[in-house]
Simulated assay, not measured.
Amino acid sequence: MIITSADADIGAARRATSEFVAHSGATASVDDVVLVVSELVTNAVRHTVGWWRLKVQVRSRGLVVDVEDSSWVPPALRRPGSDAVGGRGWGIVQHLADDVEVFENSGGKTVRASWGRSQPR
């Protein structure tokens, strides 16, 4: 599944992700994945100028969420005050995903969150 800033907003990204994950056969929690997508896309909207692209896919090793945007500046953990509205998203992403990576691409950066497949018992 691929969604871009040209054809969707944050709410549409959440809804499409929920639908995709629910029917994908992935073992990751739909709620966890949707919250991670919400945080990553929101960060792309708030902290970059230009486009963003969301790609959610099931691979042999699990579920992968890529959010690409037009900035080369990596996400950073902030310490919000107790009454602050923002500043918690990057910590949420790191807590909910099994693995998080950030790497440069040709037009900015990609933030990748992934969840592995559970092993058969």
Rank of each mutant, 00 (worst) to 15 (best):
A8R: 05
R88N: 07
Q119R: 14
G86K: 07
S24A: 09
W72Q: 08
G62E: 06
A76Y: 09
D99R: 15
Q119G: 03
H23T: 11
G108H: 13
R61Q: 09
R88I: 13
I3R: 11
W115Q: 08
E101F: 14
L63C: 07
L63V: 15
T110L: 14
N43P: 03
P80S: 13
T110C: 11
G116T: 11
V34T: 09
P74F: 10
G108M: 08
R61C: 06
G108Y: 07
W52T: 06
A12F: 10
W115I: 06
S18C: 02
T48D: 04
A8V: 03
V30I: 14
E68R: 14
A97P: 04
D99L: 09
Q94I: 02
V49Y: 12
A76F: 09
E104A: 14
P75F: 13
D98H: 13
V56F: 05
A97C: 12
T42I: 00
G50R: 05
P120F: 02
A22S: 12
A8D: 07
D9G: 15
E39K: 00
W115S: 01
D83S: 12
D98F: 02
E104F: 14
E39I: 10
I2M: 15
V100E: 04
R121A: 09
V37R: 05
A16L: 10
Q94L: 14
R88H: 11
